[in-house]
Design a protein around this nucleic acid. Sequence first.
DNA 1: TTAACTTACGCCAGGCGTAATGATG
DNA 2: CATCATTACGCCTGGCGTAAGTTAA
Lengths: 299, 299
Amino acid sequence: MTLEQLRIFVAVAEREHVTRAAEFLNLTQSAVSHAVTQLEGEFQLSFFSRVGRRIELTEAGRRFLDEARTVLNRAEVARERMLDLSGLRDGVLRIHASHTIASYWLPARLNAFRAAHPGIRLHVAIANTRDIGRLVQSGEASIGLVEGELPTLDLCSDIVAHDRLLLVVAPDHPWATTPPDVGSLLDTPWVLREAGSGTRMEFEQGLRVLGVDPDKLDIVLEVASNEAVAGMVETGDAAAVLSASVVAGRVEAGLLCVAPLPLPDRQFRVLRHPQQRLSPAEHAFLTLLGLTITPNKPM
Amino acid sequence: MTLEQLRIFVAVAEREHVTRAAEFLNLTQSAVSHAVTQLEGEFQLSFFSRVGRRIELTEAGRRFLDEARTVLNRAEVARERMLDLSGLRDGVLRIHASHTIASYWLPARLNAFRAAHPGIRLHVAIANTRDIGRLVQSGEASIGLVEGELPTLDLCSDIVAHDRLLLVVAPDHPWATTPPDVGSLLDTPWVLREAGSGTRMEFEQGLRVLGVDPDKLDIVLEVASNEAVAGMVETGDAAAVLSASVVAGRVEAGLLCVAPLPLPDRQFRVLRHPQQRLSPAEHAFLTLLGLTITPNKPM
DNA sequence: TTAACTTACGCCAGGCGTAATGATG
DNA sequence: CATCATTACGCCTGGCGTAAGTTAA
């Protein structure tokens, strides 16, 4: 008998439906069915009777549902009390993130964090990659999320995701049908993110690798907004380079086309000051991102 | 947070001692230390302060001890209520076992079963292998534990342990120093278990493999007791063949010596009637022996 | 030097997902 | 035939043990 098994059992019992319980739990039918079977085996009881292609609670199942809820409640109380003690119950988590990350990658993670720690208020400040590096360096920001590397700074920097830059144009642009060659890159008008943004820095680096001088590009607009860049490209004749996560929805909708251009992969990175101690909430957030931090235990 | 982690934490907290908790839990220091560390990491708290080479509970640890006990108590109540429902809380478990198994192999398993199901009374009937086969066949016994195979009977038979037969003699017997050759087996007096015992049957089978006719042995005593056989050998000039588990302690004590003789390995087996339904207690016992039985769920 | 806890590393069971199977309306 | 549950099977993570590392008496 495991707390996890109890959670699964309760989800199934409340719905009398394995599939819906599985959806709720983000598991497969198979895993849920297996967990229930295992519980039944442990006690030599059937908690559900398989009637037709439905299941329904047996008397034993009803009794066990009560018990399972009680155990889970006690466990939840214990957990909350400990989180109170450690400061993970309230407080604020302050994150500085680049435009791309804040708009397209971060929200799902913030929701996961909220699910785990509902009491913590979240603050996200948006700036471009270069500025975030400076803020973390100076101590004004404690957690920064940026694209690519900032080699000049002396910060802890861990990869938390991978990303690709894509060359995009409107569907009626020539490159939508015939791939551009390197030489033609200088012949099209460009809309780009501002200098200092991760997207811009990585793109310029990619151009240099291809032997193209970024300063020679015909830049018609620089703007600190991925949406503005995308909108310009959709409705005009300019080309742009944006993160795959930014353009995915627009390509799906037929508003943009991806033109093949070999740009290097880049990484989303989390930046921390090496000396600064992490708050419990910060630590929990980094753990949620899959990092294993050297422990930092108050009390 | 896992129920198992809570159990481990409570054991450590009650003793303020990782090693002793590990002994109590039948785990290693390492596993216990790891589990505690993991709990502390989850809540970002230190439950123990490492003072010198001891540990002691912190304030957070004391609070968590209360919580952990509460959760475990609720879980235990739930478990007991379900066991009540399934009939695993009281009743009798009846087992028929051979002499060797009942004396040397079974006790540890019975204690494990008692730990898991304290309410169940245990009955062990001792008989030799052949008789147990007959009792299971006739339905008088529902679970039999025997040595070796009984090919003539049509029963479920699963291996639950491996055993070796050893040729033993007193320390002053010639074979204690110079290994016997096959031809000399007929020149020594033998003390043997009675016909029908697994030990006897397996030994005779082993002799035939070696090309020796068992009927030609010089048998000075047949007795339905391993201890009697061992006692005879210790204090006389006879040889015997007994299970490794029977002689281990006596060899350790210098009372007996093992003479090398290539006897086939044998298996301890559990016998069941194919049709007979298992009681919850019987099912639980077989599961404890490591068998996976086709489920058999009342209620 | 010993006795304690922690950390590193490899192994293995158990849990999960994919896919096949079974049952029912 | 579509839907829902179970079963089979392979993968992989997480927990355990062995052993090395660390600290204090």
